[in-house]
């Protein structure tokens, strides 16, 4: 059973629909008993870093998730804001502590002439290292991004794929059983569905 963490940050319905279309049981919940029964955990989310951490804290989710993900090593996927919250700290509207599951900092995409922020739309990724999460992904794979901030991990080894928008930034991260995508696989048609399928088998 895939559990989509419901922490009142954005469009969880799409993520749930996408997993349901792959034929797996999906529950959207913030109840500890559901999270404990999950085989896979997904942290979706769009919105600001500070709000995301505040909601996770207020719902009492941080210790439960830490136990399941860091303790029991359940496969975990962070999507978009759900990826950024894994960092040590975020700098959106002030400094905020993150979960620190993948050490790093979340910063604004540096602005350049002709570069519209947020980065919205379909973009390619460059695979930096082989990993089951990107199995069978074609050269021309494109994903839907929508974000103004990007994740800079402390160890470059945590990066599976990067994307270019002015700068080159982390598009897919992986550390142990923790996976994360800056793009929205649930909105990225067949390439995105492939990532979700690979996550289920990872």
């Amino acid at each position: 059973m895939v559990v989509i963490i419901d922490y009142q940050m954005g469009n969880k319905q799409s993520v749930s629909n996408a997993f349901a279309s792959l034929g797996c049981a999906v529950v959207t919940s913030h109840q500890p008993e559901d999270i404990k029964q999950a085989t896979h955990l997904v942290l979706p989310g769009v919105g600001a870093f500070g709000d995301g951490m505040k909601n996770l804290t207020q719902l009492g989710l941080i210790p439960i998730l830490a136990e399941e993900v860091l303790g029991k090593k359940k496969p975990f996927l962070g999507v978009c804001l759900g990826m950024q919250l894994l960092a040590t700290k975020g700098t959106e509207y002030g400094q905020h502590q993150g979960l620190n599951w993948i050490p790093g900092v979340v910063d604004l995409i540096p602005s350049q002439a002709e570069l519209r922020i947020p980065h919205v739309g379909w973009n390619n990724v460059a695979i930096k290292r082989k990993h089951p999460l990107v199995n069978d992904l074609g050269e021309e794979a494109t994903f839907y991004f929508v974000h103004s901030y990007h994740f800079q991990p402390e160890s470059p080894e945590d990066i599976v794929a990067t994307c270019k928008y002015g700068i080159e930034f982390a598009a897919i991260l992986q550390k142990d059983n923790i996976f994360a995508t800056q793009f929205h696989p649930e909105k990225s048609h067949k390439d995105g569905m492939l990532i979700l399928k690979n996550f289920l088998h990872a």
């Binding site: 629909n17 929508v146 929205h184 649930e186």
Partner: peptide, 9 residues
Amino acid sequence: VSKSCFVPL
């Protein structure tokens, strides 16, 4: 629509 189209809506 959202149950069958996995693109931004």
